Simulated assay, not measured.
Amino acid sequence: MALTVKQIEGAKPKEKPYKISDGAGLYLYIAPTGTRSWRANYQQDGKQKTRTYGRYPAMTLAQARMAHAETKVSGNASASGSVPTFEAVAKAWLRVKLPSLSNSKHQLQVANTLERFVYPFIGSTPIDQIKRPQLVEIVVKAQEGGRVETAHRVAGRITAVFDYAQDMGTIEHHGASGLARVLQARKVKKPMASISPEDTGQLLSLIDDYDEPVTRLGLQLLALTFVRVGELRGMRWDELREDGAVWVIPAERMKLRLPHVVPLSRQARAVIEQLRLLSGEGDLVLDSPVRRGHPVSENTFLFALYRLGYRGRMTAHGFRSLASTVLNERSGFERDVIERQLAHRETDAVRAAYNRAQYLSQRRDLMQWWADWLDQQRAGHQRASA
């Protein structure tokens, strides 16, 4: 019988590792540590080997089934004496990779990178016959004309395809690692404009006097929660938990495609209650005053900051930079707690899986400390201006 997501979520670790079958040879392996990974056994040279596709939940049930199906196809090709071409493996990798990307534009960019810069040179070559000098030539050529960032993306995607082929058992090893070493260094991205901590009180006081109430309250909530603008714009009343003390942003609105928990300070809850009076019976917390039933526009907060005199000095995203600076330099909270609340990418996959649900108690304290700090800055500016 095929697995269901409910069964997977209910698979708890035991003293010894065990597996639950999905059928067609695919199974979920549950380690005593709680790690869950998609695996399948196969025969090679008369010996049984195990292939690991990826870990759950980073690889979903649907993605695991697709990867397993693709591997069976390429495995049959290998058994008949032909190794799949780079393009065939890359397209199998794309079918697994693309659904996990944030939007259709990003998906198209990933696929087009391979179509434009890689397939014309090695697309029709069996993947086990491609040598490192060929790959170096491809990424260096991609860099021509100053396309440094593009070349780095090409290098990363080539490596990912070869890693996938190795994980699937198509090749034993490859020479595609570290291709970016031959490229020029990437340009450091210029950070979004953000005020200094010392200027926070003045900005908050100006926001408090902003004439349009939904925008005013939205900016206050953005400062208090330091989430990304798109995450806040789509905020719904049914995303509030624990009598309004916690906001759970669903995965589809998060940059990393993982749900994010935002503990709400007393001040944030007070702002939300004011917004409740304005939203009426709508589903959205920040219901547009211009188009009812739609969220405020993408540039609402940025243009409001412009009108307050902060063009080039502060952006809506700048509240995240401000919070990161202050929390890391002044709050005394551990960096992991701060990074988890900022919903930044964790470079270590195991660490990310472990930390995702951690630090919630500390994060409640952090968010209240931050809201109190903002109040202190506002009050300090008002005293100085009196």
Results as ranks from 00 to 15, higher is better:
residue 180 A to F: 06
residue 69 A to E: 12
residue 162 F to Q: 07
residue 320 R to H: 00
residue 353 A to V: 10
residue 100 S to P: 04
residue 299 N to E: 06
residue 71 T to R: 10
residue 356 R to H: 10
residue 280 G to A: 13
residue 322 L to E: 01
residue 191 P to K: 00
residue 88 A to G: 12
residue 132 R to P: 12
residue 193 A to I: 02
residue 274 Q to A: 05
residue 317 H to L: 00
residue 5 V to Y: 02
residue 37 S to W: 04
residue 274 Q to I: 03
residue 204 L to M: 15
residue 34 G to T: 08
residue 329 E to C: 06
residue 319 F to K: 00
residue 155 A to D: 07
residue 41 N to W: 07
residue 288 S to E: 14
residue 70 E to C: 08
residue 67 A to P: 12
residue 224 L to Q: 08
residue 297 S to Q: 04
residue 373 W to Q: 02
residue 149 E to I: 14
residue 39 R to T: 05
residue 353 A to K: 02
residue 112 N to R: 14
residue 65 R to V: 03
residue 191 P to G: 02
residue 179 L to H: 10
residue 260 H to C: 11
residue 31 A to K: 15
residue 261 V to R: 14
residue 49 K to C: 07
residue 228 R to T: 04
residue 48 Q to V: 13
residue 247 W to R: 00
residue 131 K to E: 13
residue 293 G to L: 11
residue 23 G to C: 14
residue 351 R to M: 10
residue 278 L to K: 06
residue 3 L to A: 03
residue 92 A to N: 15
residue 59 M to K: 06
residue 215 T to Y: 07
residue 132 R to N: 06
residue 341 Q to T: 00
residue 205 S to H: 10
residue 74 S to V: 01
residue 232 L to N: 04
residue 121 F to S: 15
residue 280 G to P: 06
residue 352 A to D: 00
residue 344 H to G: 04
residue 99 P to R: 03
residue 143 Q to I: 06
residue 384 A to P: 01
residue 115 E to G: 10
residue 250 P to S: 04
residue 70 E to I: 00
residue 85 T to W: 08
residue 350 V to N: 09
residue 131 K to N: 09
residue 338 I to Y: 08
residue 11 A to G: 07
residue 71 T to N: 14
residue 50 T to W: 06
residue 181 R to G: 15
residue 196 S to W: 06
residue 31 A to Q: 12
residue 87 E to I: 08
residue 98 L to P: 00
residue 315 T to C: 03
residue 181 R to P: 12
residue 260 H to T: 08
residue 301 F to C: 08
residue 137 E to G: 14
residue 55 R to A: 15
residue 128 D to Y: 02
residue 380 G to F: 00
residue 369 W to V: 11
residue 331 S to W: 09
residue 3 L to P: 01
residue 299 N to S: 11
residue 308 L to H: 02
residue 285 V to K: 10
residue 169 G to F: 05
residue 333 F to I: 04
residue 216 R to T: 01
residue 350 V to D: 05
residue 324 S to A: 09
residue 179 L to Q: 13
residue 320 R to Y: 00
residue 226 F to C: 00
residue 162 F to W: 08
residue 24 A to Y: 15
residue 140 V to W: 04
residue 247 W to M: 05
residue 72 K to V: 05
residue 62 A to P: 14
residue 154 V to C: 05
residue 317 H to W: 03
residue 276 R to E: 09
residue 79 A to N: 09
residue 370 W to L: 02
residue 243 D to I: 07
residue 292 R to C: 09
residue 267 Q to W: 06
residue 133 P to C: 13
residue 41 N to D: 14
residue 9 E to Y: 04
